[in-house]
């Protein structure tokens, strides 16, 4: 069993690495992690260092991506902004994945009214334009990175729930589940030991793509001024500050946006690469 599952993971990893796009995405994501964790050691400036003598400088040797209206180094702030994006992406998706997986497992496994109740809740949640709902909650509460992560998580679990439920429904009738039940395994054991591991791969793909979505949402909220609050640098609030100087300091508006673009593309590439690696039928048929 163990050697078999190792072989399975090895196969997936091999297919993932042989896909150039997925690999490129993986490298960028890894790089972003390293940059965020090492930020204080890599950057020569501090993200909050004001420098009244070097305001709005274009990209140069000393400041690769220029300085902003308060003389802060843009590259440094972008690297620190990566921390915010990673945090929001992973915590929000973690919440969404946890709720979605639990709801999907419970609904699919127990069926009947439990299933009805949970799936109708999903339907209801899906009726709301997500961004409207997020905006309403965040603006009503005080803007804080924690609220953002929680609200993005609470409004993003429905897709995962449907996905997991569908997997569970098809797994539930398989012989190995019947065998486990015949051997007297409890519901909990069947769910966690036999069904969950088999339903995880689509969840992993959805979660990776979800990180990209959460990063976009956070940047949009910060751009509207109700996300991460200055002086903490986030790519979204850097763009808001930069847009007032668009005419004579283009670098303030270009680079944070590029950072978002590259990051989101990287997560999408990893997600799609994972999907193809897990289910090779799609690409090879």
């Amino acid at each position: 069993m163990n050697s078999l599952s190792n072989h399975y993971i090895y196969d997936i990893a091999k297919r993932f690495i042989s896909n150039r796009f997925a690999l490129a995405g993986g490298v960028i994501v890894t790089l972003l992690f390293v940059l965020s964790f090492m930020a204080p050691y890599i950057t020569p400036y501090s993200p909050d260092d004001l420098d009244a003598y070097h305001v709005l400088l274009p990209p140069s040797n000393g400041h690769w991506l220029g300085t902003d209206e308060l003389g802060r180094d843009v590259l440094t702030r972008i690297i620190y902004g990566a921390r915010v994006s990673l945090k929001v992406g992973f915590v929000a998706v973690g919440i969404a994945t946890f709720i979605g997986t639990t709801a999907g497992l419970v609904a699919g496994y127990f069926g009947r009214w439990v299933d009805q109740f949970l799936m109708r809740t999903v339907d209801i949640m899906l009726c709301f334009p997500t961004f409207f709902l997020i905006l309403a909650v965040i603006a009503m509460l005080e803007p804080s990175i924690w609220y953002i992560m929680i609200v993005i998580g609470l409004t993003g679990w429905m897709g995962v729930a449907r996905l997991v439920r569908a997997e569970v429904l098809s797994l539930r009738e398989r012989d190995f589940i019947l065998a486990a039940r015949a051997l007297g395994a409890s519901d909990t054991r069947i769910i966690f030991r036999h069904i969950l591991p088999n339903a995880l791969s689509p969840v992993l793909v959805a979660a990776t793509l979800g990180v990209a979505g959460a990063i976009l949402t956070e940047s949009a909220l910060s751009f509207l001024g109700i996300g991460v609050q200055p002086p903490v640098p986030s790519w979204g609030n850097m763009l808001t500050a930069g847009k007032d100087y668009l005419e004579f300091a283009w670098w303030l508006s270009l680079f944070p946006g590029l950072a978002i673009l590259v990051t989101v593309i990287a997560y999408n590439l990893v997600g799609e690469g994972l999907r193809d690696a897990i289910d090779p039928r799609i690409t090879r048929s």
Binding site: A212, L216, A220, L239, W250, L261, V264
Partner: peptide, 22 residues
């Protein structure tokens, strides 16, 4: 398609406003 998925629309709007408008 990947660009379309990933581009933050508010950023693209800003760039287009700058390019075509300003």
């Amino acid at each position: 398609v990947f660009l379309g998925f990933a581009v933050p629309t508010f950023w693209l709007s800003l760039l287009m406003m700058y390019l075509f408008g300003v």
